[in-house]
Design a protein around this nucleic acid. Structure first.
Length: 270
DNA sequence: GGAATTTGACCGTT
DNA sequence: AACGGTCAAATTCC
């Protein structure tokens, strides 16, 4: 069987589930409908996500899949961002690869991974500066995961996190592959792949195998308003925001995520 | 004293 | 030339 086709089908399923989630989110905006439909529907959506992500994790064990989804940009990025030559300081590939996804949350939350801030820049036409983080295990485990955090809105505060490359380190605690908890409690509003979490972060946690999950999808937020003024040294974004793949595990372990906590849209590159 | 953060410089991309 | 991602020395934190 063609792993890629299987994966594409799974991704399509995720997209549908995400669309359903969007419907739910819209429903939550309308408070009356939210109270009547969310517990059951949320549970269903969560289970759908759970099934898809579990399968995707399993697919990750297939080397052929990894190869088929290694893009040119990834290859070049590897060579560029690896900084094999010390003199090539700042040598990188600006063009984003396909293993990139974004998340928008109301708070810069803590995720399970350990991040090291390595830079902060003022971005043109952006009101707030952008912070750059790399995985703490970049050198000891050659983990290439990086992320960028930028505040995009003042009131209410909104933060955009852009993840580039998934973790390859073992920075995560043990994680059981998403068990079918059959948890349909009304308070359970989390969703796998919600790319967000709210629970307090243990210093170290999560699952090693999750960290090596290759993301074949890119996630884009559809709209973003960035005021055209500039301010420097915004220290509001010092807490490491969540890592999507952590969140998947986190959601599985601790279902405490609000659906409206994330404004996320999936987009799939062909 | 080691680890993490800050911040100006560097440098490839656009 | 401007922009933005990264480096690395200086500084701060624990």
């Amino acid at each position: 069987m063609d792993d890629r086709k299987v994966l594409e089908e799974l991704v399509r399923g995720l997209e549908f589930a995400n669309q359903l989630r969007q419907v739910m989110i819209n429903g939550k905006d309308n408070e009356s409908s939210a109270t009547t439909t969310t517990p059951f529907v949320q549970s269903l959506v969560k289970n759908v996500f759970r099934s898809f992500t579990n399968t995707l994790f399993l697919l990750d064990k297939y080397p052929s899949y990894e190869v088929s989804h290694t893009t040119k940009s990834e290859d070049s990025q590897e060579s560029c961002k690896g900084f094999t030559t010390r003199n090539k300081r700042g040598y990188y590939k600006r063009k984003r690869n396909t293993q990139e996804w974004e998340e928008v949350s109301k708070t810069p939350k803590v995720d399970g991974h350990q991040w090291r801030k390595y830079g902060q820049k003022e971005i043109l036409k952006a009101k707030y500066s952008r912070s750059y983080y790399r995985c703490t295990h970049k050198y000891d485990q050659n983990c290439q995961a990086t992320k960028q955090v930028q505040r995009i809105q003042e009131d209410p505060p909104l933060y955009k996190t852009t993840y580039l490359s998934h973790h390859t380190c073992n920075d995560l605690l043990n994680y059981e592959i998403i068990p079918d908890s059959n948890n349909n409690s009304p308070s359970d509003t989390s969703i796998l792949l919600s790319f967000n979490n709210t629970f307090p972060t243990p210093t170290k946690q999560e699952c090693p195998f999750l960290s090596s999950f290759p993301s074949p999808i890119s996630v884009k937020k559809l709209e973003e308003v960035i005021p055209a003024s500039s301010s420097r040294h915004n220290n509001n974004v010092t807490l490491p925001p969540p890592d999507p793949w952590d969140v998947m595990s986190n959601s599985a372990m601790c279902d405490s995520v609000g659906l409206d906590d994330v404004n996320l849209f999936l987009d799939f590159d062909d």
